[in-house]
């Protein structure tokens, strides 16, 4: 039983490690995933701040749009300070 658990934990660890390595190679999906995770925090804040003026879906959409705008601004800052990367 314990051996099976250890083996399972090792598999999970390996999967996470592989996923992380793959994420490092493929940066776009990783950034999208991070954006969606952040949206889980931002969307309820938008919903609460607007006092129910927007539906939950609209709150998620607005929060995602705000995060996309911030991400675009960050990207443009990178272009400005490290233009040779592009």
């Amino acid at each position: 039983m314990i051996r099976n658990l250890n083996s399972m934990l090792a598999d999970v660890g390996e999967t996470c490690s592989t996923g992380w390595d793959s994420g490092r190679r493929q940066q776009v999906p990783r950034y999208l995933f991070l954006l969606l995770c952040l949206n889980l925090v931002a969307a309820p804040a938008v919903y609460a701040a607007t006092d129910g003026a927007f539906s939950k879906t609209q709150s998620y959409a607005i929060a995602l749009l705000a995060l996309t705008t911030v991400a675009l601004a960050a990207y443009l800052f990178v272009v400005i300070f490290q233009p040779e990367r592009f």
Binding site: A73, L76, F77, V79, I80, P83, E84, F86
Partner: peptide, 23 residues
């Protein structure tokens, strides 16, 4: 092909303008 110094300078200018208008 890599960006030339003038292209890099112009890219920075365009990025600055884009960022200003985005804000």
């Amino acid at each position: 092909r890599s960006k030339t110094p003038n292209e890099i300078a112009l890219t920075v200018l365009l990025a600055v303008l884009t960022l200003v208008f985005l804000i």
